[in-house]
Write a protein that binds this DNA or RNA. Sequence first.
DNA 1: GAATATACATTGACAAATGAGGTATTGTGT
DNA 2: ACACAATACCTCATTTGTCAATGTATATTC
Lengths: 111, 111
Amino acid sequence: MSIASDLIRGHTDTIILARLMGGDNYGYEINKSIQQKTGGKYELKEATLYTAFRRLEQAGCISSYWGDEQTGARRRYYTITDLGRETYSGLVEEWQAAREMIEELMRTEET
Amino acid sequence: MSIASDLIRGHTDTIILARLMGGDNYGYEINKSIQQKTGGKYELKEATLYTAFRRLEQAGCISSYWGDEQTGARRRYYTITDLGRETYSGLVEEWQAAREMIEELMRTEET
DNA sequence: GAATATACATTGACAAATGAGGTATTGTGT
DNA sequence: ACACAATACCTCATTTGTCAATGTATATTC
């Protein structure tokens, strides 16, 4: 994995919320889907992932419940809340603005 | 209303290096040019700015010298080094890759 | 029965950003 | 003369997100 995590920092929450917009999911699977979507170029570290879940739940953006697996390891599923959906939209808009700003600021002067 | 700085985090160095690609400049003026370019939507906090200068000089990406102003406050000018130029190119490439990845990961599933 | 994959969780350390404080000079309004 | 804003630099302590290390437990495969 070659992308500096400081470039992703600040987008972790948005990425997780985006994954949950498609339906309830659990941590391990979310991270697998991130790896798959980036062709293995990126993955969230477990500590980062679970820290983010705590943060988002604390903020009321997601809620969680234990799955009823009869077999295999237990899974904690997360659901995006209405607040979470609003937050997601806001973060995406912020990203659009930030992206343009960064591109502008990274451009060198040409005469 | 401004941009959350966590979205800019990790780009501070790139932005400063970009400003110095156009020629030597000093901190206060660099920050003014950032404000101007973003239409006031963003500015680096002074502590962030000077911390970044120390970091970049430490890393050999920039060098500095005192200006010879006869009047007004003293100015410390910064010059980008060859290493700084290389670093800048690398950071811009990283940004291109990171930007695409983030856009991909922020997209929700559509059926 | 040993290794691997699944699945969740906590801890301490680190690095970037920042608030809050500081120094010093020049120009402007009253 | 005096207050105040603008210019221009600097440092320290705190906050925050990331991450390596470590731990728990179950199921499958060889």
